[in-house]
């Protein structure tokens, strides 16, 4: 834990609006997320994944952890970013996130540093949603068109 409980500022506890949806796919589910920047679309995509695992209304911000993702290209970066988040949920601290803030979004060296706000997943407190097995490159799309103000990502997760 980087910060003790109660050490959060007012801004830390503001929950961003939902900018994601779940699209049809026969066996799995496709996450579609967007935002005012590609960074925001990435953050929203991460939240879309957590939103599929539980009902986020039951999640409180009690701890914050920092993850890092590195890759060779943008798709790889999105993939590894989500994989790191899934890992944060799957092992100690078993973190279910309420909010993600990307503090470094480097699209030249393909590197992300992200602060993950949430708490340890607890059966009984948090409704059990679907289990995400893996992130896939299947039909992955990254729309990055600043001139039209279009920033969107599509990812199929294996469930």
């Amino acid at each position: 834990m980087d910060e003790e409980m109660g050490g959060f500022t007012h801004d830390d506890l503001i929950i961003p609006p939902v900018k994601y949806e779940y699209l049809d796919h026969t066996a799995d589910v496709q996450l579609h997320a967007w935002g005012d920047s590609l960074k925001e679309a990435f953050e929203q995509c991460g939240m879309a994944m957590f939103g599929y695992m539980t009902d986020l209304a039951y999640v409180q911000i009690k701890e914050v952890h920092t993850i890092e993702a590195n890759a060779d290209d943008m798709m790889g970066l999105l993939y590894h970013f989500l994989d790191e988040l899934l890992y944060l949920f799957s092992v100690e601290p078993f973190l279910i996130c309420k909010k993600l803030v990307i503090t470094e979004f480097n699209t030249e060296e393909f590197r992300i540093v992200c602060k993950c706000y949430g708490e340890e997943f607890q059966i009984g407190k948090h409704p059990q949603g679907s289990e995400v097995k893996a992130i896939t490159y299947s039909a992955m799309q990254i729309v990055d068109e600043p001139k039209d103000n279009r920033f969107e990502v599509f990812v199929i997760i294996d469930i």
Binding site: Y87, S90, V91, F94, E131, I159
Partner: peptide, 17 residues
């Protein structure tokens, strides 16, 4: 190590889906 860490808490669980 990543796989082993993911596996350890889940051994003996049914899963979902």
């Amino acid at each position: 190590l990543r796989s082993k860490k993911r596996g350890l808490p889940q051994l003996g669980t049914l899963g979902a889906g």
